[in-house]
Design a protein around this nucleic acid. Structure first.
Length: 537
RNA sequence: GCCUCCCUAGCUCAAUCGGUAGAGCAGCUGACUCUUAAUCAGCGGGUUGAAGGUUCGAGUCCUUCGGGGGGUACCA
């Protein structure tokens, strides 16, 4: 088969709408311009351009034009020097963006551009005032093309701030027909798979990701101001520790070893405390080989932090301040009054001090009997159809049954509009957590819940190497299911603790979920730019 | 993993009991120098996610497969 044949065959497969756009691309080239554009210096954001509009200059210019027209009418055939001079003090700007509307009136073409700052910004391209090539470009521009324009800022009769183009330049051709101009892109699969289309075609989507970016930089600023240092620790780990989750496995060729994508940065961050870093945080991507739903993406972002010489309580304060600061940033960005932000049906109040309630207290309040009343707990669990025995049919320990009931009933009974720390978890539920000094049955752990979602667990960290070693051992001994395959005894971590880790508080904030809350998005996929999807067939 | 719903033109959606697949937007041709989802006149556009099956006849009913949504499970 010759090359020509291949080209022909390929073209036959091209959809007629794409073919049409390819022809329009040729028409741009025929004007002597590169459809894929050149560097374009000095282009303002569309919002920035609109802000430059000068009412007085525009009015003065219009008056000048009117006076000149009047003079031409009054003195037909008057020589040029005798006519009033029109002074044009209107600011001239350069703009660029994606074409979202195109109205061709013959010798005057109206085009609306969009960029990340502005949904729609109008330019007018007139055959009389625009350069010839620019007018030609405007005539063959398709929806979705990226173009740039330069000209004075004026306001139309209908009152819309507009660039009256003196030149138009092609920046890039869009060969793919864009979504419907009004209804937009509603197919969620396409929105996630082709985020590049979603971002320009769905202003709400752009808004969310711009806000997410602002929140991340605000979080860094806030933590740095609070004396925390940002660090980066390994994502490829020989042992996946710091959480109980199934890891992703990969292989390193050079060393011929199995490596795991990290499930948590915890054990490395604690090593840094041993080394002498006092307050550290990592904005960390974690990978957990588990199911996906509205609150879980297999890779997700956490802000994990540790404070030497602190404890669970001190870190709860750090978290509360951080979350409140992020709420403030989100409120400002969204023009909200105060610190109450909507999340679905809820109005979540971030201003008031976060609620605190003990696990047992919440249990009793929600169920009407104490969790120590194990017969009633078991009865209720059976009633609710909850898991009371393991896969082999062996009855679960009381505390796990209590927790089943707790998660089914008590967590849901929280006031979701009020950020709440649940404290005093039973030790047995958090086997790796340090038991409370005054009451060893209680773990030094506090979980922040907002909007019905678990947002951030807090711990007073274990720093006794012998206790840590025995907890590793317990974890390995007790279980022989699939999960335990990935649990391991981290010898080096115990060695680090033997060197001596100061007492510390630690916390891991689920960033994606916080962004969901603050951007009022109900699914994690709407706050992750490229959520994991099954590969296209 | 299990349950359930969805997949129709480039996009957003219709199609009654199983009876000739339609509309708006976008596109094409023409008109138009202050439009606003511009307007006006005309035109084209489909392997109904895929493959089987039932039927005289399938977008519609059945089976399998693919992709997606929701729920559920796993998830310190």
């Amino acid at each position: 088969m010759s090359e020509d044949d291949q080209t022909t065959t390929a073209c036959d497969d091209i959809h007629h709408l794409e073919q049409q756009r390819r022809e329009n691309r040729e028409k741009i080239a025929a004007l002597g311009l590169d459809p894929y554009g050149l560097r374009y210096d000095g282009a303002l954001s569309l919002a920035g351009a609109a802000a430059r509009y000068d009412e007085a200059a525009d009015v003065a210019h219009q008056a000048g034009v009117a006076a000149r027209k009047q003079a031409q009418k009054d003195h037909p055939g008057a020589a040029e020097p005798d006519l009033p001079v029109v002074t044009d003090g209107r600011p001239r700007v350069r703009v660029a963006g994606r074409v979202v509307l195109h109205r061709d009136n013959g010798k005057l073409v109206w085009i609306n551009l969009r960029d990340e700052t502005c949904e729609s910004f109008q330019i007018a391209v007139s055959k009389r005032e625009c350069d010839e090539a620019g007018f030609g470009v405007a005539k063959v521009t398709d929806l979705g093309d990226i173009i740039a324009a330069e000209g004075p800022l004026m306001r139309t009769k209908a009152g819309e701030i507009t660039v009256w183009a003196e030149s138009v330049r092609p920046m890039s051709k869009c060969l793919v027909p864009p979504p419907e101009k009004r209804a937009g892109l509603s197919d969620v699969e396409t929105r996630y798979r082709q985020r590049y289309v979603d971002l320009w075609a769905t202003p709400e989507s752009m808004r969310v990701f711009r806000l997410r970016s602002e929140l991340m930089s605000a979080a860094r600023r806030h933590l740095e101001a609070a004396g925390f240092m940002e660090v980066e620790t390994p994502m490829l780990q020989a042992q996946a520790g710091g959480a109980a989750a199934r890891p992703f496995i990969t292989h390193m060729n050079a060393l011929d070893i199995e490596l795991y994508l990290r499930i948590a940065p915890e054990l490395y961050l604690k090593r840094l405390l041993v080394g002498g870093m006092r307050r550290v945080f990592e904005v960390n991507r974690n990978f957990r080989n588990e199911g996906l739903d509205k609150q879980h993406n297999p890779e997700f972002t956490m802000i994990e932090l540790y404070e030497a010489y602190g404890d669970m309580e001190s870190v709860m304060g750090v978290t509360e301040n951080l979350v409140r600061e992020l709420a403030r940033v989100a409120a400002t960005a969204q023009g909200a009054e105060g610190l109450t932000l909507p999340f679905g049906e809820l109005e979540i109040d971030y201003a008031r001090p976060f609620e605190r309630v003990a696990y047992g207290e919440l249990f009793e309040r929600a169920l009407g009997f104490p969790m120590s009343d194990t017969s009633r707990v078991r009865a209720r669990a059976e009633e609710l159809g909850l898991r009371v025995r393991d896969e082999k049919g062996v009855e679960l320990d009381d505390v796990f049954v209590v927790n089943e009931v707790f998660e089914a009933v008590a967590e849901g009974s929280l006031d979701h509009a009020r950020p709440t720390f649940i404290t005093h978890y039973p030790s047995k539920l958090s086997p790796l957590t340090r038991p409370n000094r005054d009451d060893p049955a209680v773990a030094d752990r506090a979980d922040l819940f907002i909007g019905g979602m678990e947002i951030a667990p807090h711990y007073t960290e274990l720093n006794d190497p012998d206790v840590q070693a025995s907890k590793f051992r317990e974890q390995l001994a007790g279980i022989d299911d699939e999960e335990s395959t990935f649990r391991n005894f981290d010898e080096d971590f115990v060695r680090a603790l033997k060197v001596g880790m100061p007492p510390a508080g630690g916390m891991g904030l689920g960033v994606d979920r916080v962004v969901m809350l603050l951007c009022n998005q109900r699914t994690i996929r709407d706050v992750v730019l490229f959520p994991l999807m099954r590969p296209e067939a």
